[in-house]
Simulated scan of single mutants.
Amino acid sequence: MKTPPSWHSPLTRLGVILALLLSPPLSAAPADSNSLPDPDGKPADMSKPVKVFILMGQSNMLGFGTVAGNKEGTLEHATKAGKYPFLINDDGAWTTRMDVRNVRVMNFKDHKNDWLTADKTGRIGPEIGIGWHLGEHFDEPVLVLKSCIGNRSLGWDLLPPGSKAYEHDGKLQPGYGETPETAGSGEKYEGKEWYAGKQWDTDIASARQVLENLEKYYPGAKGYEIAGFAFWQGDKDRYNAAHAATYEKNLVQFIKALRKEFNAPNAKFVCATLGQTEKGATGKEGEILNAQLSVDGSAGKYPEFKGNVASVYAHPLSKGGASNGHYGKNAETYMNIGLAMGEALVGLYEDE
C-alpha cells in the first residue's frame, strides 16, 4: 500500500473528522483534494495483477462535467482557482496517472481507453476522483472500468439476477428476465426485445469483453482481480412509484449479484446518493435516498455489508442543480463526488 498523503494542518484534520462524525454514513464531506499529491509519472508494479474497479449507473456516472472553459463550473476554472491542484502541473497542463487506466465501454463499444487524466476537450464523471484515490492507495496497477449508459432504472433496466416478480399497488411487476406481459401485469414497455435486467446483462457483458481482452486495455497486464464496484444511479427510479418503493431491495440484490457474477465475494462496493436529495426528504426521492444510505455497512441494517459497503451522501458535495439536469454540467460536482467515492473505497480497504 502506498503511503497516504498527510493533511495540511490539525484544523483541517479536525474539520474532516467532525464532518464524518456528524454526518454518517460515509461520506458527507469531500476529501481534502489539496492534500493529494501530483502523480509521479511512474508506472505501477506490473508484476502484480491489475486491481479492477467496475463503475456502473446511469448518465451521471457516464459523466457530464464540463472540462474546458473559463466559466464557473468548468474544470479549467476550478483548477485556475486553486482547486484540485494535482490535476495540473507547474506549466498548467493536465497531469496524467501512468498507474491507472481509464476505460469506458457502452453497449459493447469502446469510448475511452487511456491513462487517467482530465480530457480538456471532453467531459468528466466521477472516475477521475475515484481513480486518483485508488492510484495513490495501491502499488498494483489499477483499471477503472466504466460500463453504463444513461436513462436506466434499477427497478427495470438494471434489475439484477435473482429479482422476483412482485405486486405493487395491485399490479404485478416483472422480475429479472421477464417482460410486463410474461409477468402478467398487462403493462407494455417500448422495445420488443427489452426485458427486466436487459441493461444489466449488456453492461456486465460489455465489462467482461474488456476483461477478456485485458492486454488491449492495460498493456503489460498479468491477470486481474475484481477489487471493487462504484454505483451512482437512482434518477430514473424516482419517476416510478414501484421502483422507488423497492429500490432498497433491488440495491441489496444488485450488490450480491455483482459479487456473484464476477466471483468476487470480497470486492468492496460504494454507492453515491443523488446530489439534490437532502436527508429528511419524503416521497420517492426520500425512499431512494434512505435505501442508498441503508446499505452502508456502518448503518447496521445489513451486517454482511459491514466493512465492505459504503454510501456517499452527495448533497453536501453537489454544487447545485439536479440529477435529471446533470447538475448543470458542473465539473466540481463530479470531482467532489468522485473523490468522496474513491476515498470511501480506499477507506474500506484500510479498515480491513
Rank of each mutant, 00 (worst) to 15 (best):
G321Y: 07
G223L: 01
N70D: 15
A245R: 02
K112C: 10
L116V: 02
A331I: 06
A344D: 12
T182A: 09
A340Q: 02
K164A: 13
T277N: 10
T202N: 11
R208S: 07
N266S: 15
E350M: 12
I128M: 06
W115I: 03
P43Y: 08
P10G: 06
W94V: 03
T79H: 01
M335C: 11
R123H: 14
V312F: 03
E212C: 10
P37Q: 07
M98P: 01
P160C: 08
G186N: 04
N330S: 13
G234D: 07
S147H: 09
K329G: 03
R123C: 09
E127A: 07
H243C: 08
R123L: 13
M98E: 15
N70V: 06
Y239H: 15
T66L: 13
N324W: 11
G73S: 10
S206N: 00
I17T: 12
Y224V: 02
G92E: 14
A227Q: 02
Q276M: 10
G280E: 14
K146P: 03
N330K: 14
S6M: 09
T12S: 14
A264E: 04
E332N: 11
M1G: 02
I88P: 00
V144N: 01
Q58G: 02
V210G: 00
D32Q: 13
F231L: 11
V270F: 09
E76W: 07
Y302E: 06
L348W: 06
L214Y: 06
A205Y: 03
L18Y: 01
V270Q: 05
G234C: 12
E136A: 08
Y334L: 03
R152H: 12
P174S: 09
T246Y: 15
N263G: 12
W156N: 03
P316E: 06
Y349T: 08
A245W: 04
D45A: 13
D99K: 02
K164M: 11
P85L: 08
L145P: 01
D203Q: 14
T96G: 07
A314L: 10
L20R: 10
L21Q: 13
E187R: 08
L87V: 10
A344M: 13
A196H: 01
K146N: 12
M341L: 10
F138K: 03
Y218F: 13
H168I: 00
A241H: 08
R208Y: 06
G307K: 04
D114C: 07
M341N: 00
A281F: 05
D91G: 13
S206A: 06
K256I: 12
P43I: 04
K268N: 12
E136N: 15
G347D: 04
I17L: 12
R152P: 01
V309F: 04
D157T: 05
S294L: 02
A118C: 14
L62W: 12
L154S: 02
D99I: 05
T273R: 01
N266P: 07
L11P: 00
F229C: 05
K260Y: 07
A118N: 10
K198W: 08
D45N: 15
G125T: 04
A340W: 00
